[in-house]
Design a protein around this nucleic acid. Structure first.
Lengths: 212, 212
DNA sequence: CGGAATTGACTTGTGGGTAAGTTACCCTGA
DNA sequence: TCAGGGTAACTTACCCACAAGTCAATTCCG
């Protein structure tokens, strides 16, 4: 007789539920940022109640950490696997690897670089190693380009490199129709144009733009 | 004996107090972001109490808006004044103008691009015109570089350009010893190295993948 | 004395977090 | 085969900390 149906299992096993929560939370955290995302909203989107989330993930930070580590592992692995070949090719390969890795959940990038993370928090501390790992990959390429230059120049360019990557990913969020592959070629094309200004030069072919 | 001293003026005229509050608030908002900054903290740093701030600025958003507009006007004016000369020179001039304009309060940049602004909020809406104005300046240069290329390519590169600027400013925050002028020359030097890869090797060297 | 500067102490609202209970599944044993 | 108990899945209704925002009073200067 349709009692308010308080409590009672829905037959969803813990593992499946955790996965579902993780996916929704990653999207929510990625869009709104840790600061503005609310557990209640995540619970509502998942069609469950708050305490279930707390039962599985302990706390808001616990949930965020779970999302973060999944994303961080994926990205670091993907980028790590792309580190070979010449400097230029590696840049494009890195971008391609990132776009591909993010294809299933584009907002995962934002988890690592979430600017709304409270300063001096545990979540921020947890994000740092992943950022560091990614930055280190970039630093290798930067060293090859700038060589013996001022260490601060190298530091700045490294920072610029990953900010540019972040910016490309960000732009990607706003253009959902672009595939990962399309993004990679687009970036390669633009980089090419920057280094070798305005097209007319006849004898030159693009070296590695078609590698994706 | 030393009664808690409730109430009573300190002889600071409204105008001066407003200025002081603005400076502190801009720093606080710039560092922590709109979301994490608290009026109480600002009041404490200013050595005054919350109600005084509310008396002068109406609300948290009102205070933020005051900071935002001051910063936005300054930056747009400064960058606008730097838009002449050839494309390449204009890029460097723009950077230089930004660094110089930010010299007194480096965190002012973060006010325009604060990622912790609530989505769909009035503050975000107020920030957009400034972002737009700055982006439009960049778009001109991008059009000169990419010319007739795919509009999406232009859109992406414009986004990359201002993200790179933002990244440089960000790096600057972490290296307080650098003067504005030093930053400008550093950026110019790096850009030069990117476009014209390391002078020593006369033969063909791999072009960089840098997107700055 | 009048008004501007200023405050302690309050209310309010939001979101993280929790206690305690409810329902359904599953396994055992007779 | 079917009690019935144990446990996993789940909920309602609450608490509480913290930050935004307000009120009424109080002190000083001209």
């Amino acid at each position: 007789m349709a009692a308010p149906a308080r409590g009672g299992t829905k037959g969803v096993p813990r593992e499946a539920r955790e996965q579902q929560i993780l996916d929704i939370a990653a999207d929510e955290f990625g869009r709104a940022g840790h600061a503005h995302a609310s557990i209640a909203a995540i619970a509502q989107r998942a069609g469950i109640s708050k305490p279930l989330i707390y039962g599985y993930f302990e706390s808001k930070d616990g949930l965020y950490l779970a999302c973060l580590h999944r994303s961080g592992r994926t990205l670091v692995d993907a980028v790590g696997a792309a580190q070979n070949g010449t400097t230029a090719a590696r840049g494009v390969a890195t971008l391609s690897a990132i776009f591909t890795a993010l294809e299933p959940r584009r907002h995962d990038w934002a988890l690592l670089y979430d600017p709304t993370l409270p300063p001096d928090s545990a979540v921020l501390a947890a994000a740092r190693p992943y950022r560091r790992a990614l930055a280190d990959f970039g630093a290798v390429g930067v060293a090859e380009i700038l060589g013996d230059a001022d260490p601060l120049d190298r530091s700045l360019l490294t920072h610029l490199w990953y900010s540019a990557v972040a910016a490309a990913v960000e732009w990607w969020q706003d253009h959902p129709n672009e595939s990962a592959a399309a993004m990679a070629t687009r970036c390669a094309r633009i980089a090419e144009r920057l280094v070798r200004p305005s097209g007319a030069t006849p004898g030159m072919r693009e070296p590695s733009a078609g590698s994706v």
